[in-house]
Each structure stands twice: as structure tokens, then as C-alpha cells.
Design a protein around this nucleic acid. Sequence first.
DNA 1: TATAAAGCATACCAATTGGTATGTACGAGA
DNA 2: TCTCGTACATACCAATTGGTATGCTTTATA
Lengths: 220, 220
Amino acid sequence: MNNLTDKNIYWWRPLDDRELGTRGEILFAAYKEIHWQGFQSASLSNILARTGVTKGALYHHFPNKTELGYAVVDEVISEHIRLSFVEPLLEFENPIDGIIELIQSSGDAFSMTDVELGCPLTVLAQEMAPIDEGFRIRLIKIYDLWHQSITDGFHLALKNGQVRDDIDPDTVAMMIVATMEGAMNAAKVAQSLDKLYLCGNGLIQYLELIRKKQDKDKRI
Amino acid sequence: MNNLTDKNIYWWRPLDDRELGTRGEILFAAYKEIHWQGFQSASLSNILARTGVTKGALYHHFPNKTELGYAVVDEVISEHIRLSFVEPLLEFENPIDGIIELIQSSGDAFSMTDVELGCPLTVLAQEMAPIDEGFRIRLIKIYDLWHQSITDGFHLALKNGQVRDDIDPDTVAMMIVATMEGAMNAAKVAQSLDKLYLCGNGLIQYLELIRKKQDKDKRI
DNA sequence: TATAAAGCATACCAATTGGTATGTACGAGA
DNA sequence: TCTCGTACATACCAATTGGTATGCTTTATA
């Protein structure tokens, strides 16, 4: 019935399986349960069933459900976004090329399960931001990190003459993050990779539009 | 504690207060509770407390919680999206002008509560799409309606020479919907209208980029 | 090897959940 | 006036929830 028990079927895989330890296993199982059900509806019994760990162990490592949720955000989701979106961008000379590359490669790597569950950040943001400040400040930290990394990239691109002079790095970065989140949302509802590709192409075309002309010609 | 009891403090106001009737009151209260807590965590007791209606009345009008949720999507949220985004767009000669106008006017009308709770469509999409097919098909219908109205607009704009010839209406429409959803998501987490404006400006700049040049000049 | 603490396991608990069974008030139609 | 269906109201219920109290091992340390 629940096909998410397997540890490695989806892309939003945050940790290595090996050597998690009890705490890590709980954290990982909680992450999956939350990604799937949301935080409030995430059942501790389900998490325990996933792992085979007992309630005593859970409450030995975490004082309560909320703190377990916080730990999932801090240690699992945050790290995943950093490794998937922030770090890789630093590798590229031109952030426009980097983002295009990231869009395409993650699009290729996505399974249907990834599409169905969508971005774990958005799941928690939509559910918990209005009702729990602890979640909200943690989530905003991750979004800001992501957003800032793109902003920095475009500041550099501006200096290097890789983008049109009239763009504002902050605004463009906001656009990119928002569009990617929105794209994953649309694909999730439609349960369709095509929606993701469609929006990915739109975003790539947008990026080509703000690329500096001489740079555009140089590349061809 | 719960400051959402008042009926008219926020923009996502779907119905008129007057003459709701018992069923309408339940529906409205359920909509607000769901918008705030999500569907699964929406408490029937809370909904009853909001309205003063008893459980007997609720179960007289709705067979169960799920069907109540479906009714909220079909009758409240769907109608709201239609009246706020789909219908108004038809009024404009140029869809680009229309969308810019819609972005600006809704930005002006948004209260902090609107920002905090975000788009009710996204709330339900993120929570329910993966776990309840009934919700998913209803939500997809609304997204498609919205998306299609923009696509139609750009098909017309293409014919009228209002946009660049190399754009694909479907792709552009996807971009716009995704970006708006993503913008509301970002603003919700940050609890900041500024984030909304920032992303709104980005989207407007994007729209100006795909506007046809002679049309761009003509307007100034 | 003695001891303390960390790492779990079992059993239990109050509170809340969605849902139901039964009863009642009331207006329309025959 | 009798009846029948609509529109509620009250009281109750099993199941699940997060959380706790109390135990037992194992491991590190002195």
C-alpha cells in the first residue's frame, strides 16, 4: 500500500543508507513520512513501523514530535537543498549555464515518485509556515540560502558581462526560485513529468532572454 | 487565538456573507479552516465552533469529511480562481497588459493574512494531491482552467502580433502560472509582501521581454 | 569488576478524531 | 388533521493520536 518504504526509489534522497544509526534511521523515516503526509498528519506509529524502532527509542532521541520535525528540516531537507541546488551552482563560470544545466539534469533524474511528492520544502512551507514559527524560520533560512546563491551568481555575471545590464540580480533570482517551485507544484498536481519539462523549457527560454547578446552569439 | 474567525478580513474571500444558509456557512467555515490548517488537520469541531452549527447539521448536508472537502474545492476555491484570475483576463485586449494589471491590482489588495495563508489551491495541492485522487482531479481541473485561459490569451496575442513570434503560448502560460504560485509560496514563508512585489516585478519584466518590439514602442 | 549513564523496549494514558444512532421540531401536501 | 420528508440537535463510540512512566540491556569509564 505504501510504496515509499524503500529507501532509494526517489530523488529527494537526503542521506546515505549505510551507517545511519538509530537516530538517523528515525530521522530518515520521519523525513519520508512528512514528505508524503505532511507534518501534522505524519504518524509517529507509521514512522516507527517504517523503521522497526520502538517508541521508547524515538523519545530517547527526540523530546517530542515538533522537535523531530525541526530536526528533519535542519538536518535532512536543508542539507539536501544545499547539495542539490546551492553547491552545484558554484561550479559554473556562468550562472545561466549552471541553472540551465541544473534544470535539465534534475529533470532527467526525476522519477514519477519525485514528481508525485514534489519539493519537500514546499510541502512543509505550505502546511507549517502559517501555524508554527519554529518551522517557518527554519524554512525561510533554506529559501534564503538558495535565493542568495543565485543572486550572488547574477551579481558576478553582471560584473562579467554575461547578462543584460538592466537586470536586477535579486529580482531575477526570486523569479527563478519561484518558477522552479511553481513548476514542481504543477507537475505534482498533474502527476506529469511533461509539465515539469514544459516549465523547465519556459525558464530556460527566459534565461536566454536575459543573457547578454554578444555572449549569446559567442556561444553559438 | 484564531484570528480568522472574522469573515471579511482577507482577500481569498469566496462568497458573500449574506444569505449563505446553513450549508453555505458550513462550506465557508470549512474553506477557512482548510485554508488555514490544511484538509487532514482541519477539525470538524473547529468548523462547527466557527459556525455555531451542530454536528447533526453538518452530517445532514455532507456525507463525510472528504465530501465536504471536495465541495469546498468545487464550489468555493474553483469559483474564486475563476472570478479572480480567469474572468478578468477576458476583459483585456492584450493579455500581457491584462496579466500585469492583475498582478498589480491583486498585489495592492492583499492583506498580511492573505500573504500568510497563501493560495488555497497550493495548500491543498501540496497536501492532498499525492494521497487523494478525488482532490487531485478537482485541483487539476482548476489549474487547467487557469492555465488554458492564459494560453488562449497568448494564442490571440500571437495572431494580433502583440507578442514575439517565437514564443509558445503553452510554455509561456505555464511559466506565468508557476511563477505566480511560486511567488505566493515565497511570500507566505517570508510573511512578506515585499517578496510578492519583488517576484511580481520580475514577472512583469519577463512579460515586457516577450512583448513584441513595435508594440512595445507603440505603447510609449 | 563495579557503577553510572546511555540506549532502548513495553505498557499504558488522556485527549481528540471522524462518524453514527436516535430523537425532535417543523413545514408542505393530501 | 394526519403524515411524511427535510432540517437539524444530542449523546455516544471506536480508533488513533502524541506523550509518559517504568522497566531492562548494553556500553563506556573509573
